[in-house]
Amino acid sequence: MKFCTLLSTFFTVALTFGVTTAKSHDDDDEFLPDVRRVPMKTFTLQAPFLHDSLHSRWYDFGGDTLVRTDKYVRLTSDRPGQIGFLSSRLPLTAVNFEIIFEFKISGKGNLYGDGMAVWLTKDRSASGPVFGGPDNFEGLGIFIDTYKNNRPGVTFPYIMLMHGDGHTSYSKSDDGKSNEIAGCSARGLHNANQDTRMRITYVKGDFLRVDLQYKEPEKWTQCFRISNPPDLPQTAYLSFSAETGELSENHDINEVEVNMLVATNAELHGQPLTKLTSPPSVVQKKKSGSWFWFFVKLGLLGTAAYFGYKKYLQYQKEKKYSRDAMF
């Protein structure tokens, strides 16, 4: 009787563990399932930043940018009227990619500005009036605006996405409201207690997503996600820039990492990496497979328990015969 009770408890625990494990596995794959990340070394930026010739191998620096080789690339210092930028020497040719960079915006006092930007543009970045970068650009700009000029009802710092067609100017008068495709507020980003990070995920024809990490270490918060994002120029350079006006702050970049996204699932092999966030056939196959292996394991456990129980009965029977023979 005790054995049956133990067996029942064992199966209950096994069933609970199996369902929980399958659910956790599916949860892990909700964002970009069946994707391999291939590092693109030609866009890597990390300490000591400079090489033997006192230049970066993969990036050019300009304006008021300062490099502290053990810590950061400082696009602007906490001084008024500064502009700084860095730009990749090679274009980003990957169709689908992920950009992760670690940065910090900090300064003294309660008033600060103006902000920084990330660029994916046809031309290599040069200094300009839009967060230290060019106006009338062609490509995508993601702006981290730290000072509110004229945008009621929005909490700053504010992060927004703009698509440039080569002719349209950034609207400073309303903090880019008329240019915005998507955006989010990021209260606490300035003078955060930790180094902050941004992750930009771009899958051509499917989505563009921006995530932030500034509230807690290793915890990503989605800023925005848009479907069918604008196409990038055939040659798109990755750049960063920053600007201070009458108000100022430090804009530091600590590290840049770029990964090419490649499909690993056989059904997607050799095809464009699109619709990966909701591929019905792949997800259905994955879920069916998870349940299949769950029942296989359950069957093996049941078989082992059955033969164990048979052996237990045989042992009890032999024990009884031995005891009878003694008397």
Rank of each mutant, 00 (worst) to 15 (best):
K104L: 10
G115L: 10
D123E: 14
D123H: 11
W119R: 06
N96Q: 06
M116I: 03
G113H: 03
G115C: 08
F97K: 01
G107R: 08
N110T: 15
A117D: 05
N110D: 14
I100K: 06
L111M: 03
W119F: 12
F101K: 05
N96W: 02
E102L: 03
D123L: 07
D123Q: 15
G115M: 15
A117K: 06
I99D: 04
A94T: 00
G109V: 07
D123W: 07
M116N: 06
I100L: 10
D123Y: 08
F97S: 00
V95H: 10
I105W: 09
G107M: 09
D123S: 09
K104N: 13
E98D: 14
S106L: 05
A117I: 15
N110W: 15
N96Y: 03
G109F: 04
E98W: 12
G115A: 05
K122M: 09
I105Q: 06
K104P: 00
A94H: 01
G113Q: 07
T121G: 09
F101E: 00
G107V: 10
E102I: 01
S106G: 11
E102V: 13
E98H: 04
K122T: 15
L120D: 03
G107Q: 12
T121V: 12
L120G: 03
W119K: 05
V95Y: 07
K104F: 14
I105P: 01
G109C: 04
A117T: 15
S106M: 09
A117Q: 13
M116Y: 05
K108A: 13
N96C: 15
A117F: 03
W119C: 02
N110G: 15
F103L: 08
F97Y: 09
V95P: 01
F101W: 10
K108I: 11
D114L: 10
T121A: 10
N96K: 06
G109Q: 02
F103Q: 08
L120T: 00
M116E: 01
V118K: 04
E102N: 10
D114R: 10
G109P: 03
F103Y: 15
K104C: 05
K104I: 01
L120Y: 02
G107E: 13
G109D: 04
F101L: 04
L111E: 02
A117E: 13
F97E: 00
M116W: 12
M116A: 11
I105M: 06
V95L: 10
I99L: 12
V95D: 12
F101A: 01
D114W: 14
E98K: 12
I99S: 03
F103V: 09
D114K: 07
D114C: 11
F101I: 07
F97Q: 02
E98I: 08
T121E: 14
K108T: 14
E98N: 14
K108P: 09
I100R: 08
K122C: 07
G113F: 01
A94R: 00
V95T: 15
S106W: 10
E98P: 12
I105S: 07
A94E: 02
M116L: 06
I105K: 02
W119Q: 09
V95G: 04
K122G: 08
L120R: 03
G107D: 09
N110K: 15
E102F: 07
L120K: 00
I99T: 02
Y112E: 07
A94W: 01
F97R: 00
L120V: 03
D114A: 09
I105V: 11
F103A: 06
W119I: 00
K104A: 09
L111R: 01
K122A: 14
G113W: 03
L120M: 10
F101R: 04
N110Y: 14
S106V: 08
N110I: 13
